[in-house]
Simulated scan of single mutants.
Amino acid sequence: MKPTLLILAAGMASRYGSLKQIQQFGPSGETIIDYSIYDAIRAGFGKIVFIIRKDFEAEFREIFEPKLKGRVETDYVYQEMDAFLDGYPVPADRTKPWGTAHAVLCAKNAINEPFAVINADDFYGKDSFEKMAKFLESSCKPDVYSVVGYQLSKTISEHGSVSRGVCAADSNGNLAEINERTKVYKDGDKIVYEDADGSKHELAPETPVSMNFWGFHQNVFEMSQELFKEFLQKDGDKPKSEFFIPIVVDNFIQKKLGVVNVLPTAAQWFGVTYKEDAPGVQASLSALVEAGEYPTNLWK
């Protein structure tokens, strides 16, 4: 069975105001999602599941169905505030969705096979999709998950600090721990992260970091559902608390339920953390098209 790609796109609408203006970066008006889907299809993924907000479904289908019809199976899942709450009342002051691990949980009834998770607005590169597809087809098990490990230096913005999940791997190349560093930036010719107290710590350029490209066995849904219950009991009343994928992965590792293979890639990641990043993304894609990595028009 071919693996599935789950694309986290529920947050896009709030960033763009309307999906009509999803930013076009490719020479024929392609969005970053278009490149991810194109790479996924050629790497061997058989289905694309989009996590979206229900009120944007019509617009979303209008954008993607004409391109993808006949090329790959698609499905749409909503991240709704009341999904999987199991009787827990939505707090009155809660406006924020419950986070990335909750978004994944919302796809529980749409996925019955090993699957990968990506962000909608990050460009991950062909190599990453090939490595992930191979992992999902041949190595993924109930006790073996994976994460693509990017080299830190290939994920930095020139226009300000970024948040990165810094990965520590053990001697077998499995994830030992993941630490969310919320302020990582270039400081002269070094890359540093800052602690809450302002102290700086240098990170090696080749340090592996997670860009939220995960490979899961479908058993992750049951585990996530249990953890989400615990999360709600502990932090559900905090208006800004979020149930993130690393919380689930950390539980999986710490409780010795299995291992998470780090799939190293030298691919260049890019995304739009700051609006000043947009011209660079456009230039990078143009260079890849000129080099023959992608056709001028992806869906022609």
Score class of each variant (00 low, 15 high):
Ala168Trp: 01
Val148Glu: 09
Lys134Ala: 14
Phe135Glu: 11
Val147Glu: 10
Ile111Asn: 09
Cys140Val: 01
Asn112Ser: 14
Thr155Ala: 08
Val162Gly: 06
Asn119Trp: 03
Val148His: 04
Asn174Val: 00
Gly149Asn: 02
Leu152Thr: 02
Asn172Thr: 03
Asp170Pro: 06
Asn109Gly: 08
Tyr150Glu: 12
Ala116Lys: 02
Gly160Trp: 02
Ser146Val: 06
Pro97Arg: 05
Val147Gly: 09
Lys141Met: 02
Asn112Ile: 03
Asp143His: 01
Glu158Cys: 05
Phe129Gly: 04
Lys126Arg: 15
Asp93Val: 02
Ile178Met: 07
Lys141Leu: 00
Met132His: 11
Ser153Asp: 13
Ala168Phe: 01
Ala103Asn: 12
Ser146Tyr: 04
Asn179Asp: 10
Asp170Phe: 04
Asn174His: 15
Ala169Phe: 03
Asn112Pro: 05
Glu158Tyr: 07
Phe129Leu: 01
Trp98Ile: 01
Ser161Asn: 12
Ala116Tyr: 01
Arg164Lys: 14
Ala169Val: 08
Asp187Gln: 15
Phe123His: 15
Asp93Cys: 03
Cys167Gln: 13
Arg94Ala: 08
Ala176Lys: 15
Ser153Leu: 07
Gly125Ala: 04
Pro142Glu: 08
Lys190Gln: 14
Lys186His: 12
Lys183Leu: 06
Ile111Lys: 06
Phe135Leu: 02
Pro91Phe: 07
Ile111His: 07
Met132Glu: 13
Ser139Gly: 09
Thr182Met: 15
Glu130Gly: 07
Trp98Leu: 05
Lys131Cys: 01
Cys106Lys: 06
Val147Pro: 06
Phe129Ser: 05
Glu113Phe: 00
Thr182His: 14
Ala101Tyr: 11
Gln151Ile: 00
Leu105Thr: 06
Asn179Tyr: 03
Ala107Pro: 01
Glu137Gly: 09
Asp122Trp: 03
Ile156Asn: 10
Phe115Leu: 04
Ser139Arg: 14
Val147Leu: 07
Phe129Arg: 02
Leu152Ile: 00
Val148Lys: 00
Asp122Met: 05
Asp127Lys: 07
Ser139Thr: 07
Val104Arg: 07
Val184Lys: 05
Gly99Ile: 00
Ala92Arg: 06
Asn172Glu: 06
Tyr124Leu: 04
Ala92Lys: 09
Ile178Pro: 02
Ser157His: 02
Val144Phe: 01
Leu175Val: 00
Pro114Met: 00
Met132Gln: 12
Gly99Phe: 00
